[in-house]
C-alpha cells in the first residue's frame, strides 16, 4: 500500500512542477507552487519526517504563496511570451 501512495504523490508533484513552469498566468503559477509545496509536505509526512513536513506546510504552502500573490498583485498577470 505504501509505495502506491508515494508514486501517486510523486507523479502529482512532477505534474505540478511542469504545469507551474508552462502556465502563462502568474497567479496560477503561484497557486501551483502552493500545491507543489503541499504535496511535498505530504511526501515528507509519509517518509516520517514530520518536522520537515510541518515547516514545508507552514512556510512553503502557506506564507510563501501569500508573498507570491502579494508580489503578483503589483504586476500584470500574464507574461508577454
Amino acid at each position: 500500500m505504501g509505495w502506491q501512495i508515494d508514486l501517486l504523490i510523486l507523479l502529482m508533484v512532477i505534474s505540478c512542477a511542469i504545469a507551474a513552469v508552462e502556465v502563462k498566468d502568474l497567479l496560477a503559477t503561484a497557486i501551483l507552487f502552493g500545491a507543489y509545496s503541499f504535496l511535498m509536505c505530504l511526501l515528507w509526512a509519509v517518509m516520517g519526517a514530520v518536522d520537515v513536513a510541518f515547516t514545508e506546510a507552514s512556510v512553503g504552502a502557506g506564507v510563501s504563496t501569500v508573498f507570491f500573490v502579494g508580489a503578483i498583485y503589483h504586476t500584470r498577470r500574464r507574461t508577454k511570451d
Binding site: V50, D51, A53, F54, T55, S58, V59, G62, V63, V66
Partner: peptide, 14 residues
C-alpha cells in the same frame, strides 16, 4: 512534539 519556534512563528505571522 513536532513544531517549534520556526513553525509557530510562521503560523503566528500568518
Amino acid at each position: 512534539s513536532p513544531g517549534g519556534g520556526f513553525q509557530g512563528g510562521v503560523i503566528l505571522g500568518a
